[in-house]
Nucleic acid binder design. Sequence first.
RNA 1: GGUCCCAUGGUCAAGCGGCUAAGACGUAACCCUCUCAAGGUUAAAUCACGGGUUCGAUUCCCGUUGGGACUACCA
Length: 555
Amino acid sequence: MSQIKDLINIIFPDVKITIQNLEKKYPERRLPSGAEVTRFAPSPTGFLHTGSLFTSLIAKTIARQNNGIFYTRLEDTDSKREISGSGDELMKQLAVFGVSPDEGFLADNKETGLYGPYVQSKRADIYRIVIKHLMEIGRAYPCFCTTEELELIRKEQESYKQMPGYYGQYAKCRNLSVDEQIERIQRGEKFVIRFRSMGNHFSKIKVHDEIRGDIEIADNDLDIVILKSDGLPTYHFAHVVDDHFMRTTLVSRGEEWISSLPIHIELFEALNWKAPKYAHLPVIMKLDNGNKRKLSKRKDPEAAVSYFIENGYPPIAVINYLMSIANSNYEEWTIQNRSYEYQKFHFDLQNMSLDGALYDIDKLGYFSKGIISHFSAKELTYFVKTWSSVYNRMLYSLIEHDERYFEKIMNIEREKENPRKDYAKYSDIYPLIRFFYVDYYEMIVENHPYNEHISKKIVSQVLESIITENDYSLDEESWFESLKKISLKNGFAVSNKDYKLNKDKFLGHVGDVAEILRISLCASKNSPNLYQVMQIMGKFEVDKRLEYVIDNFLK
RNA sequence: GGUCCCAUGGUCAAGCGGCUAAGACGUAACCCUCUCAAGGUUAAAUCACGGGUUCGAUUCCCGUUGGGACUACCA
C-alpha cells in the first residue's frame, strides 16, 4: 500500500491540494430552481463552424429561458492541432451573432466568472489533483505503451475482428506491479495515465438524453487515456472534471459524442459525482451527390460562419434560420408574431428533430430577405456601409461619397406594407443598384437591349418627349397618367388591352414606353419602380442620361 | 467490420392507433402589374421495404434496406 503512495508521490510530487479543497473552491451555484447551467466549449482549431454556432445558440437559449448561466470554455488540450489566435476569433464571431456568454472565456486572454480558469491549458493543476485521487482509489494507472505498440495491438484486434481499444488482455500495463511502474518512471520512460475501467462491454447501460430519451449502449470497458504524456488531459476526462467543477447542469453537444457517453458516465461514477443532463444535438448536413453528409469545413464554404459574414447575411438572419432548424415551429411563430425576435420564442428541446437537418441556403435567403426588408433605409445603409468597408470597397466608396443618395436608393419601395424583398444578403445589393452611379451606367448602357421592333427614331422621339414633358412634382399616379399621354402622342396605346384590340393602330403600349425609359435610364430591362428611380436621380441626371443615349446610340 | 443514432414530398417538417396526411421553403401556373422583386390564388409532390400486434397502422414491435456518427496520447 505504501508502495502506491510512493508511486503517486513520484508522479505528483507537487500536488498538495485535495479534491475536497476543489469542491469548496467551486461550490454549487445558487440559482433559481429550474435554472440550467449550459456551456459552449470549442477547441481553438479553426474558425467558428456553423454547427458550433447552432450548438451554442441552443445552449444559450436554454440558459436564457430559465434564468440560468451560459458560459464558454476553451478546450485547448491538443497543442498539435491548435491554431494560435483562433480562440479569440471564435469568441468574436460568436459575439457577431449575439451568442455572447454570461461567463467564461471571452477573448484576448480575458475571462469572467468564479469557476475559472476557463481555458483548459490553465487547469493542469486541477486535472492532476483529480487524477491523483483516482490513483489513490485505484481507478487510474500509468501506461508505458508506445504508439507503435498500440498500433500493433490495433492490428491484432483487427485481424481477430475484435473491438479495437485498450481493454482486457490488451491492456498490458493495467496489471503492472507497482515496483515495475516506479522503476520505469524513474528510468525516465514516457507514460500516460489511463483510467481503470470496471465496466463490462457485454452488458448494456441505459442513459437518458434530453432529446432522444433513453438510449441503451454497451457499457464502457476501455481503459482510456485521461492524461496525455504532455501532461494535458484528454477530452473525456477534461469534460468530466470541468463540467463538474464549473457546475454545468446540462451539456448540449453534437451527436458525435453519444458513443463516448458510457466513458463519461463511468468517469462520473468513479469520482462519485452526479453527471449532468445531456442533450445530443443533430448535426447539420449537406446534400452532396444525392448523399447526406456532415457539413465539412474543407469542402463547404458555408460550413464556416465567416461565409455568412463575408457575403453579408445579417447575423440575425442566420440565427433565425438556425432557430427554424432547431424547432420547426419557430418559422410558424415568426409568421404569426410578425417578428424575428427569436428571444421571445419559447424553445423546447423536446421539439427538436432527431436527424440532421440539411443545410438549405434558399431557406436562409427567405429569412434574410424578410429581415433585410424590415430594416429602415437608415439602418440598412449603416449595415451595408459597415459590411462593404471590408468586403466591397467599390460599394463602400460610393456610399461614402454620398450617403444620402445611397440611403434614398435603399428606401425604394421600402416604406410600405409589403416592402420590396430583393436582397438576401448585402452582396446582392451592388449589382442591382450600380446603374444609379454614372460611371457604371455609361459602361453598360452601350449594350442597351431595346425592343428591335421599335425603330431608333421612335425611341429617340419618346425620350425627347420625356425630356420636355416629364414633371417631377407629380405624385406617382399622376406621373403615370402623364406617361400614358406621352405614349399616346408617340403612337403607343395607353394600356395593353387597348393595344391588343387595335394592333395595327399602335406601335405598342405604355409598357413598351416604360421599357424604353427603363433601358435608357437603368441600362437594364428590369429595375425597381421607375417613378422612384427618377425621383432619386432628379431631372438633371435623368435628362443627362436620356440625352446621352440619344446622342450616342440613336442617331 | 463492430457499436450506437436516425427514417413522412426536392428541403424543413406537423402527426403520438381511425385525418381528404397540416404548414413553410423551393418548383410550376394564373392574378395583380410599366419590367423586376414582392403580394394574392392554385397546382404537382411524402408516409423506404417486408413481416407481425390490432377490428384498424404513417403511428407500436421485429427484421431488411438506406443515411449518419463513433471506433486516437483529436476534440
